[in-house]
Amino acid sequence: MAPVAEGYGGRCPSGHYCENGTIVPSACPAGTHRDLQGGRRREDCAFCPAGWFQDQMGQTECKPCPARFYCPPTLQEAGGVITPLPCPRGYFCPGDAPQDSPVPCPRGTFSSSEGLSRAEECSVCPVGHFCGSDGLTRPSGRCAPGFLCHARAVVPNPTDNTTGSLCPPGAFCQEGVLAGECSPGFYCSGGSTSQEAVLCPAGFYCPRGSHTPFAFPLSSRNTDAPPRGNKPRGLPVVSHW
């Protein structure tokens, strides 16, 4: 027979438990609930499951965890969730995920802030950096020399021409960004890491920003000047007739 609370003149009410000899029903503690009457002891109050919480005593049901927070499963010794926890950095909490587990920010993004509710709130991996795994709180690192990293790069050496590419011909790249043009007297064919990537060979000229050597034109009697600027480094000395 279920215990009777004398003050209530009937069965122990839901949201409470009534131990033998009790006069006043005991409220189920915060973090628990009981939706049936006739509770006999504290253990008859059920812990709030993952994704739910209860911040009040004597309740018949738990409350769903709101967006931007999560309510993790707890050990029985610790009791149920009383106060939702802020969604951790590197994750977002939409409030409708299975069992309210935080969802990691996807590759190509990160989050250094708590309390996100949507993937769109994760920060885009910035230019010159890559974000190579889920759930990052900061970018994985700088991109490799000789490569350009645009937004949302997921590897240090992207070649998809969307998140990044090889350093373009005629230029050199450091730490995932364009660092400048190739120096006069040198050429940069693509993926270069230095402004003096390859020395212009004899018989050719290389203006600033060259991606390939240009043949040095010779007349039968004299030497024509290069089309642009002064004679760059790396040119041979040509004798006149």
Score class of each variant (00 low, 15 high):
T83P: 07
L85G: 03
P86N: 05
C87F: 00
P88D: 01
Y91Q: 04
F92G: 00
G95C: 02
G95H: 07
D96W: 14
Q99V: 08
D100L: 05
S101N: 14
P102T: 06
C105G: 01
T109I: 04
S111P: 04
S111Y: 03
S111C: 09
S113Y: 13
E114N: 10
L116C: 00
E120T: 12
E121I: 01
C122A: 06
S123H: 11
V127R: 07
H129Y: 10
H129D: 07
S140V: 08
G141K: 03
C143E: 02
A144E: 09
G146C: 07
V154R: 11
V155S: 10
V155R: 08
N157F: 15
P158A: 06
T159V: 15
N161K: 15
N161H: 14
T162S: 15
T163P: 02
L166F: 11
L166G: 12
G170R: 00
G170Y: 00
F172E: 05
Q174M: 13
G176M: 05
V177K: 12
V177T: 11
V177I: 15
L178Y: 07
A179W: 03
E181G: 11
C182N: 03
S183A: 15
P184S: 10
G185P: 04
G190I: 08
G190K: 07
G191P: 04
Q195R: 15
Q195I: 10
A197L: 10
A197N: 12
V198C: 08
V198A: 14
L199Q: 13
C200F: 05
P201S: 04
F204K: 09
Y205C: 06
Y205E: 05
P207Q: 04
P207A: 02
H211E: 14
P213R: 03
F214P: 01
A215I: 15
A215M: 12
